[in-house]
Design a binder for these strands. Sequence first.
DNA 1: ACAGGGGTGTTACCTTCGGTAACACCTGGC
DNA 2: GCCAGGTGTTACCGAAGGTAACACCCCTGT
Lengths: 227, 227
Amino acid sequence: MSAPATPATGEPRREQLLNAADRVVQREGPGASMNAIAAEAGITKPILYRHFGDRNGLIRALTERHTSGLLTAVRAALAEPLERRDLVERVLDTYLAGIEARPQVYRLLTHPEAGDPTGAGNALAPALRQIAEEITRAVQAQVDLGADSPLISETWGRAITGMVLAAGDWWLDQRPCPRARMVQALADLLWGRLAAAAELPQAITPPPPAAPPAVGSSEHEPDSPLV
Amino acid sequence: MSAPATPATGEPRREQLLNAADRVVQREGPGASMNAIAAEAGITKPILYRHFGDRNGLIRALTERHTSGLLTAVRAALAEPLERRDLVERVLDTYLAGIEARPQVYRLLTHPEAGDPTGAGNALAPALRQIAEEITRAVQAQVDLGADSPLISETWGRAITGMVLAAGDWWLDQRPCPRARMVQALADLLWGRLAAAAELPQAITPPPPAAPPAVGSSEHEPDSPLV
DNA sequence: ACAGGGGTGTTACCTTCGGTAACACCTGGC
DNA sequence: GCCAGGTGTTACCGAAGGTAACACCCCTGT
């Protein structure tokens, strides 16, 4: 067992390592240790570090591999020549189908964590950021928003991405309904159904377990923890 | 330096420790080490563990302290007797004002991480989950959505929370516009402006740096990484 | 033929970090 | 006087990321 050399397959080493890492992450979720991944690949740690630099590099490579498919799919959906509502539904369905296909790995999209105290402001993982940019571009190219178009487009790009991310995450976890229903509910929200729906008869109901109405202190006192 | 005992202030010990932890997190971001926090408090690790059990306990306590303000503020905003559109704007503004007031700490809301490979499905931090539940309740109580009301309400609760989270995060990081504009843009999105806006004249433009159109492979092959 | 480079692999080690004994001290109440 | 409870310490453990330093193989150029 001292010199395995080329293991018969022409597959580049890096791909084999990523496959092993993939298996481990699939099994143990992100947070899998480098040792575990190395063991799965039948090797030891330093080789992983030679190929990927550090743990973040490995995770990043893994994420990119898994995201590229979703990203191009969403991109393609965004470019389809459909009526606007149909297009929105198409994109929503594409995204949900994508995360549905690989629920475990999907975590990498949303939780790159890897404990880096360096990262500044990106709550949205890079993969999501790319999707947000695609949506921004599509909105700006296809919708007339007047003078503020750049600002509004980008806001909406982020907002829609975050919306679908959160809703998709919940849906994937609970599976409260088939995919098509989810698509409808989200498209309806984007379509202003919140504005259009009728008011319910009963007046505003006070929140059930609400704290003593310190509502008056809604102004930001400089000392309170938040707001 | 062997026996400090009560340091003059009647403040319970736990609060002092949380204050110290707060300072460190403020300075170093989450991911601050327990040693650092203990040092800031002028003590050593075991005391922290006695008070908070483990690191997650500390972070949780810290987060709760900072979130309770925001949560009650949002709850109060949701209960105000306003016209629907005004109410939505009010809630959006309340949230954005809240995270604006404490940008550093706001990370705790969105990144509790703390490297727990245990957590199953909660992409939304508990604090956000609570906000989502409040919105769900409010929607269900005030809007007539027909038979599917429970499902749609909860979907929208998650969706809106995620939307505001992502948009707010971006806004906080880039500050592309004053808060009021942001509120308008988000309320407009929720109000169906995406559906109502006019089509732009030019047809669908292909994405600029798109990959070689492997678009045909949009069906889910069982072997491809995602979608 | 032979030197050398590039790729693959190893063992052994370091540091940092979360977490845990085991022990010491002070204070107040019975 | 003594015990209980809170505060504090030093010293340690195990797991994890990360890094030398070294060994082996094979292919290629001179």
